[in-house]
Amino acid sequence: MATHHVHAVLPDEPEKATLEGKNKILGFWLFLGGETVLFGSLFATFIALRDQTNGGPSSQQLFDMPLVAIATLLLLTSSLTSVFAVLAMHKKNLKQVQAWLTVTVLLGLGFLGLEIYEFMHYYHEGHKISSSAFGSAFYTLVGFHGGHVLFGILWIVTLQLAAVKKGLTVVTAPKFYVASLYWHFIDVVWVFIFTVVYLMGMIGGKVG
C-alpha cells in the first residue's frame, strides 16, 4: 500500500478498498470514542454548574429559542448533505461530491455565524467566560463544539481543494468518508447541546 495506486476503475466503496483506508476508518472510530468521553466530561461539568450564575443573567433570561432552532436546523441539514456527498462518492461522481460538500460547508458557516452573533450578544448581557461558573462551563462546552465545527469546515475545504488535483481515488475516498463521519459526529453532539444546554436551560422561564 506504499505506492499511490490509482485504479483505472474505482472499486465499489473505494474508502474501504485498501487496508490503509480500512485502518483509517477504524482508527477514526476510536478517536470518536475518545471525543465522546471528552464532550461527556464537559457536559457533566456544565450540568453540575449551570445554576451557579454568580449574580449574572440566568439561562432562562439569556437563551432565545428561535435562534437555537435555526442553528439546529442548519447543522442538521448539513449533516444530511454530507451523507449525500458520501452517496455521490459511491456513485463515483466527484462533481456531485464537491457540490454536496460545498452546501455542507456553507450551512456550517451559517451555523458558526449564528454562534458568534449569539456569543457576542451574551457578552453584552454580562454572560462571560469569567463572570460565573455557569459562564465558564457554557463557553467551554458550546465553544468547544463551535471549534469542532470550524475545524470540520477547514478540513472539508482542504479535502475539496486537494481533490481538484487528485480526483476521486482509493487514497482520497477514505479521507472524504472520515471527514463526513466527523461532521455527523458534530451534529450528534449538537443534539445533546440543544437538549441539555438550551432546552433544559429554558425550562421554567418564559420563552420568547
Binding site: L30, L32, G33, E35, T36, G40, S41, A44, I47
Partner: peptide, 15 residues
C-alpha cells in the same frame, strides 16, 4: 459500536 458505546458508558458515569 464498541468504541461509541464504551465512550457513552463513561459519559453516563461522569454525568
Amino acid at each position: 459500536r464498541i468504541s461509541i458505546f464504551a465512550g457513552l458508558f463513561f459519559v453516563l458515569a461522569a454525568v
